[in-house]
Nucleic acid binder design. Structure first.
Length: 521
DNA sequence: GGTTGCGGGTCTA
DNA sequence: TAGACCCGCAACC
């Protein structure tokens, strides 16, 4: 390998013979997606374990210095059935080939769908997010840091969290004890939800996508950014916590990839929340109406480990009808572990709720090669819920090389509900500056505020709309005359960005003369 | 019993 | 030749 010439101090690649010595580290991202590069502390336990929320299996790349892993995708129902709460089946594939084979029972037609009312079967939705190949993760250890690089954008839902799978394995001893176990689990969950009323600050972690750039949020939100839930497997109250946070976080958390509700849910996670929002009659979300807890959700939320293979009760009477909807999508596949081949099923199946699907496909501006990019992401539905009071979540983060043909990203985002000086926010990723659209004449202009967002001088983009909006609100409290001074605005905002997001300067702080010669461990 | 890391080996573009 | 993938092994939990 030839030595790479660093034309830019920000740049490094996992395959470089020498990479920058980094003294500022990223927060561990369990659900890293898209083409991203992260630097973790050398003593980061998660990084040392090379853990990931995605089901990543070790791949031999014949390079002992760089650990490579490829994504196994997700186990989904062949009929894409939905539960009563709108959630769908998305199990975590076993990493071990043998265990995965057993999990799928691929010798026959696949294990039956966990939904007893569904006649579908579990099948692997293979990851094809990297040029048709699985998304790959690379880990490399140096003396000072652990470097992580991901290639590709996952084109499938997130599998259940690893902790959930482990809990199933640990606790699941058979369906014969299901009744009692479910009873206990429900009781425990109820007890915890009640307890949560007395302990509103209980830590709970949110699964986030991409890089977590923590800002001055509550303790809860900081835990959420860790990427996993600290709640017991059967007693997760993240839904409760999340509902409390929802008004603040109703916004896509990433520009680059498919997003899912980041609530660590026992066994059936992702899209559900979004789907539910379409299935429910108009009105406030139940969890918001009853922010304390949702007893109704308990029955559908708590599953016994072995419940993943059969549910006791009908979960969605109309699921069959819903599944009749034929919508073009990537063909589902069955992974034959015996032969190692992947069989495509040439039929169109609807994984998403039709309403959601329509919403997703209504956007003709999609330019991404991912089925779950921002526009198509279920989280995009959160845009519908944006209010002026709580317009944005987000630590929008994008790190990629513009020259990477694999990475195509929606360049512009228009947030009509997010206004500044009565102008809707129009986020232009071309120069990573927020613009404000004058709807009358269609002109777009750059606010003086936006200067603070021109942080990167390379392709790396860091955008934090939360801070932007917060700061704007902050400014509104004060004498507006002060806001006419660009310098004040810039300095204060710059201060906020640098003080509240210590890691934000990470990638941009690489020193040209500060490289680690590869230290192989 | 499952995860993880490692490494030999095959296949294909 | 590079990359994806299969497979077996060992250590660990």
């Amino acid at each position: 390998m030839t030595c790479r010439v660093y034309s830019n101090s920000n740049d490094w690649d996992i395959n470089d013979s020498a990479i920058p010595r980094i003294d500022e580290y990223d927060v561990f991202s369990e659900w890293a997606d898209g083409h991203c590069r992260l630097v973790y502390r050398a003593d980061s336990e998660e990084a040392k374990r090379h853990s990931s929320g995605w089901a990543m299996r070790n791949t031999n790349n014949h390079n002992v210095h760089i650990l490579k892993k490829s994504c196994l995708g997700v186990l989904v129902c062949s009929l894409r059935c939905s539960l009563s709460n709108g959630e769908s089946v998305h199990l975590r594939p076993a990493i071990c080939d043998k265990a995965r084979k057993k999990q799928q029972d691929s010798v026959t037609l696949g294990k039956p769908c966990p939904n007893r009312q569904c006649r579908g079967r579990l099948e692997i939705q293979a990851c094809r997010g990297h040029c048709g190949y699985p998304v790959t993760h690379f880990w490399r250890h140096t003396e000072h840091a652990i470097f992580f690089q991901a290639k590709g954008v996952h084109d499938h839902p997130k599998p259940e969290a690893k902790s959930t799978s482990e809990a199933k394995r640990t606790l699941g001893s058979g369906r014969r004890v299901r009744g009692l176990a479910v009873l206990l689990a429900k009781e425990a969950a109820l007890g915890n939800k009640l307890m949560s009323l007395h302990e509103p600050k209980r830590q709970c972690r949110e699964i986030t996508n991409q890089v977590s750039r923590s800002i001055n949020q509550s303790l809860v939100s900081s835990e959420l950014e860790k990427g996993y839930c600290s709640c017991p497997p059967f007693e997760c109250i993240c839904r409760f916590q999340q509902s409390m946070l929802t008004p603040i976080n109703q916004f896509p958390s990433s520009l680059s990839t498919y997003q899912q509700p980041h609530v660590a849910e026992p066994y059936w996670t992702p899209e559900p929340t979004i789907q539910q929002s379409y299935q429910n009659p108009p009105g406030p979300e139940p969890s918001i109406l009853n922010p304390q807890y949702d007893f109704n959700s308990l029955a559908s939320d708590i599953f016994q480990p072995e419940e993943m293979f059969q549910l006791d009760q009908p979960v969605k009477p109309d699921f069959v009808a819903m599944n009749q909807t034929e919508i073009a999508r990537s063909p589902p596949t069955l992974l034959d572990l015996g032969s190692g081949t992947i069989h495509k099923e040439f039929k169109n199946e609807e994984y998403w709720h039709p309403a959601l699907h329509n919403m997703l496909n209504d956007d003709s501006n999609n330019s991404s090669n991912s089925r779950f990019n921002l526009n198509q992401s279920p989280d995009s539905s959160h845009l519908l819920g944006i209010t002026n009071e709580a317009p944005v979540d987000q630590h929008l983060y994008l790190e990629t090389k513009s020259t990477d043909p694999l990475f195509t990203l929606q360049k512009n985002h228009y947030y009509p509900q997010c206004t500044i000086d009565n102008y809707p926010l129009h986020f232009d990723m071309v120069d990573s500056k927020p613009h404000f659209l004058d709807e009358k004449n269609g002109q777009k202009f750059e606010s003086s505020h936006s200067k603070a967002y021109s942080k990167s001088n390379y392709q790396d983009e860091y955008i934090d709309l939360v801070q932007y909006n917060e700061y704007h609100n902050f400014l509104n409290v004060y004498d507006t005359s002060k806001t006419n001074n660009d310098n004040i605005i810039f300095n204060e905002l710059d201060f906020r960005v640098n003080s509240c997001v210590p890691n934000i300067s990470n990638v941009n702080s690489y020193s040209n003369d500060n490289f680690d010669v590869i230290s192989y461990q």
